[in-house]
Design a protein around this nucleic acid. Structure first.
Lengths: 220, 220
DNA sequence: CGCTGTGAAGTGCTTCACAGCC
DNA sequence: GGCTGTGAAGCACTTCACAGCG
């Protein structure tokens, strides 16, 4: 597929469209209009149509979009239509939470290996996976693993990234705080929930909201 | 403080500036230039200066920014300079991970109450907090709690939001999957790590990256 | 002289409005 | 008639480049 220049913002929304579509499928809804989708996602219907138009457009005029088809197309674009095997490094509290996180599987991710440097944890099982020693990170590529997940203390983040890349990983999800440097063709996604929390107080009203509590607007 | 119209994108970056500054403080660095900050954050130095200029500008010409002062100003803008008490609803795996998450405290958040509907969990301690029954969510406002954290199964998300708002909460961080509807003055931040994972395969190279593994560019 | 603060220019995303199909 | 697909207009953020101050 050759697409015309797709805005990063559009790519950022695709997973959210997919989430909405999965919800609609759960509800047994077969078809959806750009207006209904925009409503669910909180946005403009035109933007919904434009987002899909970058890939050629998936709808039928007069009908809307077939929910299942659209979900399939988005999965193809994002390459979630195949299983993406991942390796986790750092099996602390956070690592265990990630291993136990149910919805990753829904989006095609499967954590197939877990590494730690604590000798006491080696051989132990977490989330159905045997924990291996960090020194065993090598040839992840041969094991079909292209995604690395970093959940180590921040001092170890760079070393872990280097090890993962050396083992053949092509993309990284980093939960650790420290900064890391990687070759530019490797994509790193940083997840830090504190960054999201930190935006909240700025937007909170200074006076109570109870009075208005049941005048609802928009969905999230 | 009355600021001229501040872009949402700028607000979104403020927590990241703060994180970078905390790192610099750890390193004992007293002062920083817009170039150095842009370098750490991955962006343009002009943007750094413009971001701060929306609030009047915090630097000294010829010197740069005083790390500690700048961190303090950002905390004030984001209202992280006071303790933000939060209540967690849903003490499952995810809820416990949130309770154990260390860096929330660094940004001024303190989870002071935890609720669940499972009778077996009531009275139990998690993260140093006694778990209360959901029916006890009331007058959180009187307890000084303005932030609600939703970590319940998605079917219960809307009811939980209603309960939290009724109890006087003014802002919500939602980890649950379901959509919720709230009055528009209430800010809801949705965190779904699967959405971040789902962007990764799109950006990953199709061929191995090992060859280039040590030609590093940019920090994250 | 160095580095910030900022209007002005540039860029990219969003919204609009309507043509095009089903 | 209904709803998508899309060029064009509008808007917001980013980048530039230089004036201004320490």
């Amino acid at each position: 597929m050759r697409y015309r220049r797709v805005p990063d913002e559009t790519i950022r929304r695709l997973p959210k469209y997919l989430r909405a579509l999965l919800l609609l499928m759960d509800r047994g809804q077969k078809t959806v209009s750009s207006v209904a989708l925009a409503d669910l996602m909180g946005g403009n219907p035109g933007r919904v149509r434009k987002d899909f138009s970058y890939f050629g457009g998936f709808g039928k005029r007069g009908f809307g979009y077939d929910v299942e088809t659209l979900a399939g197309e988005i999965r193809k674009i994002l390459r979630l239509n195949v299983v993406n095997k991942a390796a986790l490094v750092g099996v602390g509290n956070l690592g265990r939470a990630i291993l136990a996180f149910p919805s990753l599987k829904k989006y095609g991710f499967e954590i197939v290996a877990a590494f730690d440097n604590d000798p006491k944890k080696i051989g132990e099982k977490a989330g159905g996976i045997v924990i291996e020693h960090i020194s065993q990170i090598c040839d992840l590529e041969q094991r079909g693993v292209y995604v690395g997940i970093i959940a180590v203390p921040r001092q170890a983040a760079q070393q872990t990234a280097d090890d993962l890349l050396e083992a053949g990983v092509r993309g990284i999800v980093k939960f650790s705080q420290g900064y890391i440097t990687v070759p530019k063709r490797v994509k790193v996604i940083t997840i830090d929930i504190a960054m999201d929390f930190a935006r909240l107080p700025y937007y909170m009203p200074r006076s109570p909201s109870r009075a208005a509590a049941f005048r609802r607007t928009g969905s999230l």
